[in-house]
Design a protein around this nucleic acid. Sequence first.
RNA 1: GGCCUCAUCGUCUAACGGUUAGGACAGCAGGUUCUCAUCCUGCAAAUCGGGGUUCGAUUCCCCGUGGGGCUGCCA
Length: 493
Amino acid sequence: MRTRFPPSPTGFLHVGSLRTALMNHLLSKQTKGSFLMRIEDTDRERLVPGAVENMLKGLAWAGIIPDEGVMLDKNGEVIQKGTHGPYFQSERLDLYRKYADELVAKGHAYHCFCTPERLAEMRKDQEARKQAPMYDRLCLKLSKAEVEAKLGSGDATVSERHVIRMKVPHEKTITFNDDIRGDMRFQGHTVDDQVLLKGDGFPTYHLAHVVDDHLMETDLVIRGEEWLSSLPKHLLLFEWLGWTPPRYAHVPLLLSKDRKKLSKRDGDVAVEEYITKGYLPEVMVNFLALLGWNPGTTQELFTMEELIEQFSLERVQKAGAIFDPEKLDWLQGQWMRKIPVKEFAARILPTVAEKFPAANSDHDFTKKAALIQERITFFHEAPEMLKWFYEEPHVSVELLANEKQKVTAAQLPEIFDALTKILTDVSEKEWTAEGIKTAVMGNLGSFKQGQLLWPLRAALTGLPYSPGAFEVAEALGREKAMERLKAAVAIIS
RNA sequence: GGCCUCAUCGUCUAACGGUUAGGACAGCAGGUUCUCAUCCUGCAAAUCGGGGUUCGAUUCCCCGUGGGGCUGCCA
């Protein structure tokens, strides 16, 4: 099956766009078809330089690489590949013109010379009369001779700055079966005479979509629900041009907490933002796939491969879904913990080494990485979480004493006395988390666990939060741990 | 306003017309090794309202209500 993703290069890659791109990608892969990328650059005023490259990079980050159309080559340059091009709509103007003319010739479209000012006024009137703003078909009343005269008038503002509108049959009922929503019907008289070709010679989305998706042989169009209202226009165009429309699946919109269409105002809607924050691509893909879709089982974690296998439009929700950052973060944690520990260590090593060069020559780095893997959310937190190992801790009485653990400053000498005694008895060979645990737990004396463990851990790390006391002691090694213990004793006495 | 569309815990969602309406996130309460985190256990939490159809509606139909989208020579 051929599916496609046709963004307009007017900015960053929106998470909602990534979601529809993902669905298109999943189904093309599931059916061993192809996924193509087309650029809808028909609005020249909103073009943003670099947007195409940015979007392709965002898709690639998520693991979505187009099979055809606009893509990135090995050097990161934007190229076009495929037999159905060009894939930039701005390079297909002659095509749109040709079909627009055909529609005029067939009587399904007409020239309109109304100025933007007149249209604005017309709409204002209609709204004042509580009517639906629709083109009043003033130019449809023009005779053929009048149209010819205007077109050949030599007055460029009239002959060139005019548009071609579709002539929607008011009496017609347009019906369709959407892959997600089922049967739908629209009454012709509620559909506006949409502009197909603009005054600047560029097509509007509607014409371009129909022409391109026919010529590019798209089998299935998965797009946002915001296009549902325009569907009858597209259906009419396919019919008039004598083409079979593709299958359509209108997916529900992504909503913000206030249930409005997710937009810039709602914070992070740019995929780029999530990349910078350190979210894993697997997490974004997993999260987006689960928004509005479910596998029918209780499985929550999905790889791209599993999604390709299991995704189906039948199980896509009809109602909009709120983008919940908390669930995103939960998924991030799940995926961080799924990374094999060796790989995890390899991924955090560069950032840790940047701050603590010693990490590069640390033979036990993987062991340390393992200690923080279950409590980390983003890779960039790693240096801070491991600093206790690479630099001497700043220990204070305030840190060592802890009310909740029933440790008072006055008790500290006694506590450290006990700790020193216990740990001195632990041999180099027994110096493992397990061995130290056995020693400490077996010699608590009159202390509660927390009364020994909190000061121990705090003395060793200088931190209120860190991996457990025994693990830290093992990681540090007997010599260093005893040194830090001694340093702490010096501070409290 | 008009048109289109949607409706189960706070959120994402499950449930051949028959279930004590299930799971997950978040929340709360416990537990494991002191903290943080993980993990485990438990608790709380929903079928928008009204009519039908039916022996029986979350499920089918109608009407409300509420939400969303569109209503551009934007996409």
